[in-house]
Structures are given as C-alpha cells and as structure tokens.
Design a protein around this nucleic acid. Sequence first.
DNA 1: TTTTCATATAAGTTCTCCTTATAACTGTTG
DNA 2: CAACAGTTATAAGGAGAACTTATATGAAAA
Lengths: 290, 290
Amino acid sequence: MKTKLDYYRIFYETARFQSFSTAAQHLYISQSAISQCIHQLESDLNVQLFVRTRRGITLTNEGKILFLKVENAINSIDQGEKQLEKLRHLESGELKIAAGDTITTHFLLKYLEDYHATYPEIRIEMANSYSSQMLNLVKEGKADLAFVNMPLSDDELIIEPCLEIDDVFVCGPDFETKESYSWEEVAELPLILLEKHSSSRRFLDKNFKEKNIALNPQIEVAVHDLLIRFASIHLGVSCVIEQFAKVELEKGIVQRLSVNPPLPKRSIGCAYLKNAPLSYAAKAFVEMIK
Amino acid sequence: MKTKLDYYRIFYETARFQSFSTAAQHLYISQSAISQCIHQLESDLNVQLFVRTRRGITLTNEGKILFLKVENAINSIDQGEKQLEKLRHLESGELKIAAGDTITTHFLLKYLEDYHATYPEIRIEMANSYSSQMLNLVKEGKADLAFVNMPLSDDELIIEPCLEIDDVFVCGPDFETKESYSWEEVAELPLILLEKHSSSRRFLDKNFKEKNIALNPQIEVAVHDLLIRFASIHLGVSCVIEQFAKVELEKGIVQRLSVNPPLPKRSIGCAYLKNAPLSYAAKAFVEMIK
DNA sequence: TTTTCATATAAGTTCTCCTTATAACTGTTG
DNA sequence: CAACAGTTATAAGGAGAACTTATATGAAAA
C-alpha cells in the first residue's frame, strides 16, 4: 500500500463526479482539500490520474484502471458495513443451537417458533448430541448456545440455569398406587429409565447411590417420550421430567407416584462462551427465553 | 461509509496477526495506536470486532464477516496499485495506433517490430482509415496516436512531424527520360496517381493547381505499392514517396525523373491529444520513433 | 509471589489534513 | 472587450486527529 486509504475515498468520489468542486460539495470538504489530496495521491503513486480540462476533469487511462479497483474496494467495504447493520438489527445472521432432543422438543420448540416468526431472516441451525459434546461445539465456535442438564461447569463457559425441572415417577392410569413411596420402595418397582449415559439417568443413579440404593431398571429407553408411553401402557414405572410430561399428567394418560422425599430439583442450563460476546442473533434468543 | 478507511487497514493487519502488538510492529506504529484505532472503529460501527483473550485476540463473528469484505477491498486496492506499477514499467498495457496502410508498411512496421520485441506484454492495436477519421479516433480516446500526412491541424491535438518525405515521379527502367522536366511537361506524361481522396493526391493536385496546371492521370490506384509496380512495368509515370520507394529505386526497378523545381517537401505527422497525457505505452513508442 | 506477556488508558505532542484566501486560467456574457 | 462565472492550483496557517510515551491492568506462567 503506497498511500493512505482515505485518499482513495476522495479519488473515488472525484472520479465519479468528474469534478473537484462537485466532489468537494458532496464530501463536505473544500475544493482545495480535494485538489491537494489528488496531487498527493498522484505523487504517491507516481501516476497522473486526472486530465485537467476547461470543463472539469477526466480520468486518464491509468486513472480509469485504478478507478475500477477502487470502486470494487469501496463497494466491498460498504457491503461489509451494511452487513453489520443487518446483523445488529437481526435482519441477517444465524443462530446455532446445540441441544438434546428432549430439551428441544419440550422446552425450545415453542421459543424457536416465536423466534423464527419475529426474525424470519435469521437462519436457525440445530445440533444435537451429548452434553459434553455440545459444550465442545460451543467452545469451538460451532454453536452459539448449548442447552444442557445442570449441574455442569466449564472454565471457558458461562452456564446459566434457565428452567427448573423436577424428576418424578409416573405409572399408567390403572396402576394401583400407594399413598407414598420411600426411595427403597421405588427401587423395587419395575422401573423404566433412560439409558445410562444420559444426564437424567446419571442424576438419578447418583442420588440413589448416595443412599446406597441400586437401581435396576427393567427397561431402558433412549427417548424421554418413550418413558411416558411405556408407563401409560403399564409396562412399568418411569422416571420422567414433570414439566415435560405436563400434558399427559393432566390428561391422566399417566399418573404421578408420590415419592418421599422428592428428588432434588435440577435445572436446564444455557451455555455460552465466557470470553466471546454472543452474536446479536443469539443474544436475542437468550433474551426471549428469559 | 461510517468510519475512516484507514482504520480498515489497521483492522485488516490486526485481524491477520491476531494480535495488537504484532500488528503494531508490522505497521511500524505503537501498540497503543492500534488499541485506540480498533476501539474507535468498534464504536463507529457499533459492533465488537475482537474478543480480547489472554493469548492475544480473536475476531468475533461480526469481525469475521467484516474481515472478509475488508480483505477483498484491500486486495483490490493492492491489485490496482500493482497494475499501475506494471503500466509504468511497460509490463502491461496497450498501444492503439491509427495509421494508413502505406505509412504502416513503409514507416511504422519496423518500429512496431522493435517495440513488440522490447515490450512483449503490451498489446498492440492498429486501426486504419482516412486522416480525418483517424484524428477523430484519437480525440475520442480510441487511439493513442495517429500517423497522418501533414500539413494538418486540430485544436485539440498536437501533430508533430516525425518523418520528412519527398514526392517524386518514377518510371520503368526502359523509359526514355529527358534530362529534366518542367511541371507542365510532367502533366503531359501518362500519369499513374493515387485516388483523389488520398492526402498525397490532394497535396499533388493543390501544388499543380497553384500553377494552373490540371492533372489528368491515366490510371488511379488506391495503394502506394501499386504506383511503383505499375510504373515498373511501363504502364506510365507514378508519383511516389521517395523514402517509400527506396529499395525499388536502388535496385533500378524504377527510375526517378528529374523534375524542376521539385515538389515541396512534406512530412508525416504523429498526432495525439493536447490536453491528455500519453499512456506510458504510447510515450515509449513515440520515444522510439525519435 | 513475582514475572511475563497481553491489552487499556492517560496525557501530551506531532504533523497531517483541512480551511481560508488568492491566483491563474478558460469560456461566457453584457 | 472587460467583467464575470466557472474551473483547478497554490500558499499559509490552524484545528484536531492520530500517534507516542508512560503507566495501569489483568491473566497466565514460573
């Protein structure tokens, strides 16, 4: 780069208007400034760019060649700035979310619908995997936000609780329930639980293990919805998330067992990078969830 | 444009090096200057461009998007500057010449050969037409140079003589020549002349007319070379340009008639715009001709 | 802890860029 | 033809942006 980039801005306008004085008005500076700037530019580049004639000025051949490049450059910068404006106003951009299927279905879906309706220009990308994997996606910048079961922590991330959930045991409508179950009694029931690697299951196992109770489920499934379905057709007693089985509980498709004491509450957390700012698109989504 | 273009230069280098201090060294300014500049840029654009981390800095998403555009812009400017350099050093460019066939063949050709050998990267474009038309090509910028028969003048053009030429009368080797011819005697000979609209013919007619002598050629041809050929096979006496018939005169293919007084000398002129500078390519060609 | 390596901030200075004023030139107009 | 209405060029001086130096701050490494 042989000269100040700002000179090119002035060169550009001057060439467009074919006149120093007109360009000056347009740029809100004096004609003299333009004249000096162009002289400087010409001497920096060692090339005559304009022919000064009676009726204004004309680009030389060299000037024309340069103009094409400068025009392209300035348009490019303009595009960049416009793009940023659009990002800021959520008229463009993308939102990359990592979340498990259960959380997506029962928690995020309604927000995603709203979000898309409000900001239709923002492309939404979903990834789903296991908690640790999802946190990695965020750390690698491949996802803006991850929704995971808490507790969970990471040096590089902020993980904020955004929904309290309760683990409850449910059974089919015809199941004969006792007034109340102790944990030991629960362990004796024909349990339907999630697979071992899921966070909900780990949470459950951990809590029971603290009381030296081992859980031996009769059935293990991979999907939360199946817990409800299986319980409803009397295949056993499922441990589900109360908030996610709300409809089925209300309709009596499953009924809740009273367990004493109840399992401790836990939360779903929203994870994002501690040191990098959220994209405008992600910020708007987080805002919406609150 | 929301901010000074120069900021983008700094932004670009900073983003490339992922470090304020490294970019500072590279740009030969202080780290502090970079820091201030980026802050200014961020506030002008209302967007955070970098994430400041322990080990240097990283572009934010918005920063990355901007960077692509800025990179393109800077490359474009760089290309433009490089292109100009090449033009200056005649490693690129084009030379557009307008000239009649005769002048091209007998005068320009050897220079064009040299020129192309010296500057092989310069594209040569030839146009040929009548004098007035060729001057128009120059005035419209469609030709850099026009080579025309003088005298000729134009407000917008400089027309410099670049070769003196002599019009002489020649005949075949067996033609019985007198010691010397008066103009009246010449007019009586069986003349072979160029067509009426050619400048050579007009020049001839004008000179004879001033002495009240009318020229009534037996044969009119369109091409200078045919004048020589026809004379050589004794179809008559041609008026040719001595310098362009040099070879044939030396070899005795045609012989020269001694005319008294001889026709006044005239010149071939090189025409170019008075107010616009010659392109580097054209300048080099003019230089070569001198 | 101390050291090191980043960026941020403060304050002062330099020097670029712009302004004003004027000149020089051309073409136009009363 | 002189005065004017347009250009761009040039000179000189002033405003302020951008840079420098010096120091603070903060996090990671030793």
